[in-house]
C-alpha cells in the first residue's frame, strides 16, 4: 500500500515541478517576499530550481531511492508553503500533502 502513497505524491511533485520548469513566470507570484529578499537569485531562477528539486524528489520517492529523507524534505517544504498560505484552501491542501509525505518518513 505504501506504493500507492508514493505514486500519488510523485504525481503531485511531477506536475508542479514540470509546470514550474515550463513557465517559471507563472509561479513567481507564489514566492513569499522574504524568500525573494534573502535569495541572491531572480524569482524565475528560484522557481526553476524549486521545480527541479521537486522533480528529483518525486522521482526518488517513485523509484524508492532515499525515500525517507526525500519524503522528509518534501514534508518540510510543504509545511513551509502551507504556513505561508495560511488558513486557505491551498494551505489546507498542502498540510494534507505534507502529512502524506510524513507517512512515508515514518513507514515501517
Amino acid at each position: 500500500m505504501q506504493c500507492v502513497l508514493r505514486v500519488g505524491l510523485s504525481i503531485v511533485l511531477f506536475w508542479f515541478g514540470i509546470n514550474q520548469i515550463l513557465d517559471p513566470s507563472k509561479w513567481t507570484y507564489f514566492i513569499p517576499e522574504w524568500v525573494v529578499n534573502i535569495s541572491p537569485f531572480t524569482p524565475e531562477l528560484i522557481v526553476l530550481l524549486n521545480g527541479g528539486v521537486e522533480i528529483i524528489l518525486g522521482a526518488f520517492i517513485l523509484f524508492g531511492i532515499f525515500v525517507r529523507i526525500s519524503a522528509l524534505i518534501v514534508a518540510l517544504h510543504l509545511f513551509l508553503i502551507a504556513l505561508s498560505l495560511g488558513n486557505t484552501p491551498s494551505g489546507i491542501r498542502d498540510v494534507g500533502l505534507a502529512f502524506m509525505a510524513l507517512a512515508l518518513v515514518f513507514k515501517k
Binding site: I21, P24, T42, P43, L45, L48, L49, G52, I56
Partner: peptide, 18 residues
C-alpha cells in the same frame, strides 16, 4: 534534471540582477 534546468535557464532570462 540538472541538464534540463541548464537548458531551460539558458532559454529564459532568469539571471537578470534581482
Amino acid at each position: 534534471v540538472g541538464m534540463l534546468l541548464i537548458w531551460r535557464s539558458s532559454s529564459l532570462e532568469v539571471f537578470t540582477n534581482p
